[in-house]
Nucleic acid binder design. Structure first.
Length: 116
RNA sequence: CAGGCCGGUCAGGUGAUCGCGGUCCGCGCAUAGGCGUUGGAUCGAGGAAAGUCCGUACACUGCAGGGCGCGACGCCGGGGAAAUCCCGGGAUGGAGUGAUCUAUCGGAUUGGGCCACAGAAACAAUGCGCCUUCAUCCCCGACCCCUCUCCCGUUGGAGGGGAAGAGGUGAGGGUAAGAGUGAAAUGGCGGUGUAAGAGACCACCGGCGUUCACAGCAAUGUGGACGGCCAGGCAACCCCCGUCGAGUGCAAGGUCAAGCAGAGACGAUGGAGCGGCCCGCUCCUAUAAGUCUCGGGUAGACUGCAUAGAUAGAUGAUCACCGGAGCGAGGCGGCAGGGAGGAAGCUUGUGCCGAGCCGAAAGGCGAAGCAUCUGCGUAAACCUGCGCGCCUUGCUUUACAAAAUGCGGCUUAUAGACCGACCUGAGGU
RNA sequence: GCCCAUGUAGCUCAGUCGGUAGAGCACACCCUUGGUAAGGGUGUGGUCGUGGGUUCAAUUCCCACCAUGGGCU
């Protein structure tokens, strides 16, 4: 996932988590909030409950890899945060991609007819 | 072969496709710096990157020098910038059959404190006991006498009296042998000695101090001589001695610097003076908007920062093949036992036969062969077993864990594999 | 990343110049009441976070590890 699609600044994280709307799932939690730019930005996070540093890094990599192929189908102008949950580590990449797609449809960021 | 122990090394591999971060080059847009690249090259996690327990570089702050206080360390030699570091050695213990592993390391008679319970007493001694002197007495007791009781006597029971004294009580003295308590009790054992005892004295042993010789760079070890007879434990309690140590930490610090606030200059205007008036000039007070300058400095950016070098934090995903480990199945081989009371082969004796040789003759010698006997003794088919090797195949499994200033250590976590030295056990030769 | 603090009964906490750990609430039983609550009494309940070490003896002293909480930012 290229760096221009990343959400990097700490203030942006605070803003999205404070005002955004969240969608929960056993594997990941999605938080979405509109921004002032015509760009989609995604941030990933894995808390201490996921595990050690190795497990947290792997969780974030899996979420970024799953998100990479979905980016072209998502409407621009949104800031998203993906938060990992412990069950994510025992899932395959395909399952995570399906989960993210489900969450994005619930948030109405991707049209239901788009199939990947 | 199995298990162990010590030292060292490694920490799955290859390929394809899709992707991530840095640097350099090219290109495009901008055009000093920057942004973007379906372009190319190259680099891109660990032995512990972890815990943050030590030390250090580096940075800022403080500091003439010294002292107090606080903290760390403490056998010897070497390495090292230093270290709660490493290597080797020493002493005293502990674990293991063993290879080997492991703990501790200045000072405790001469500063203070503590040693619960128990015990006379916890470092100081006479409560018990032992010995002895004096006084006193029947409270206790041996012994004697009397009375009552019982069944005649012996005996027994109760009461009273006497009593030398070795008994009781009291006072004084000597004594650390003894029991008992405890984690720990004044060195052990034997003898001499004594009223009873005692290193009071003696021999041996242990320990302490002084000293000599030898070995070793040293810690220390071995042996001898002399001395006084004996000194409890705790310094991971305070303390004493010696050595060393400023504080804070890269979120340190440095550079640039929006905004906001501050200071200064210019500044329309007001007042005063010069002047007849205007312009103009000078001075003073206050000051709106605005412009400019200044130092400090927040957000932020850059740097600090590295032949990985990020700043929501880069090494991944999918597929295929090949590996490693464990368990199971099959095949081939190897080894062991049976086969083997031993084929073959070699060998000893005897008999038969007998080429040939010697001799005048009688006769003698005699290779090979056959039969039988004695001894030595190898293999195969086949059967059985195997904690052995290789191959094929199925299932399972393939660790602990990821840099954020660098470096030297320590500690902790870790599937397994390989190399070398050694130990123990079992089997075979 | 750096710097601190705390782990003791089911819960909240005491206890330390080393000597076998307690309080309140809770729980069980008894008394009290016609019954309940309150009150009173008795009792149960502890590897003192884990593992080593010093010591005759460790919750306490020393070392390592684990967990939880907080501060700087």
């Amino acid at each position: 996932m290229q760096r221009k699609f990343r959400l990097t600044r700490s203030e942006d994280f605070k803003r999205v988590r404070r005002f955004g709307k969240s969608y929960a799932h056993p594997l990941v939690v999605l938080i979405a909030q509109t921004n002032d730019e015509a760009q989609l930005r995604v941030g990933v996070a894995a808390g201490r409950t996921v595990g050690t540093a190795v497990k947290r890094n792997r969780a974030k990599r899996l979420m970024r890899e799953a998100m990479r192929s979905l980016i072209p189908n998502i409407a621009p102008g949104w800031d998203l945060i993906l938060i990992a949950r412990p069950a994510l580590l025992s899932s395959t990449l395909t399952e995570i991609r399906e989960t993210l797609l489900t969450l994005l449809r619930r948030a109405e960021l991707v049209s239901p007819t788009d199939a990947t």
